[in-house]
Amino acid sequence: MVDDDRNILDTVVEALRDLDYAVTTAENGHDALERLRNDPGIAILFTDVVMPGGMTGIELARKARELRPALAIVLASGYSESWLEELPEDCDYLPKPYRVAELATKLGAAAGRSGRR
């Protein structure tokens, strides 16, 4: 789970743990890539699109896909969807605000395609 907003990060992590996901967090794209390099057990990348620190969620998704081609990736955003054409192949999108049930459905579908959860 990657989000620069600590309140969102904490809330979503709690919801994901309630859904029986093991969760690793990162506050920016660089930190997330480091975690992906060091933890082959990470099956899904769930990231915000708009983040400070020099790397957007789209850029993170591309770099993560280069690093781990089979990684399931879900991006979330509350901003205009004009960036959707930039979405890397086989990535999912979840518009903000979302409900826990929508999050569970989207992550479950992404994990199913990757063959992992």
Rank of each mutant, 00 (worst) to 15 (best):
A110N: 03
D90Q: 14
Y93P: 05
G115E: 00
Y93E: 10
I42P: 00
H30T: 06
R6F: 07
R37D: 05
L75A: 12
D20E: 14
P52H: 01
G54R: 02
G53V: 05
E102C: 02
V74Q: 11
R6T: 07
N7D: 14
D90P: 04
D92S: 04
L16V: 01
A104L: 00
L84N: 03
N7K: 13
T56M: 12
P97V: 13
R65A: 10
A15P: 03
D5E: 15
P52G: 07
A15M: 13
L107I: 04
T11S: 15
A72V: 02
L67D: 06
P95W: 04
A109L: 14
A110S: 09
I73Y: 06
P88T: 06
N38D: 09
E86F: 03
E34I: 05
Y21S: 03
E89R: 04
R17E: 14
D4H: 14
N7W: 13
R113K: 15
G112W: 12
L94H: 01
Y93K: 10
V100P: 06
P88I: 06
E59L: 06
L16E: 05
A43P: 03
N28A: 02
A70F: 05
T56C: 12
I73W: 05
M51N: 10
A76N: 13
D20K: 09
S77D: 13
A61W: 10
D3V: 02
R37I: 04
L67S: 08
P95G: 08
D31T: 08
G112H: 12
P97K: 15
P52D: 07
A61D: 11
I73P: 04
N28K: 02
V50T: 12
L75D: 11
V2P: 06
D92F: 02
S77N: 14
V49S: 02
D31P: 02
R62C: 06
A22K: 11
K63N: 12
V100W: 11
V23S: 04
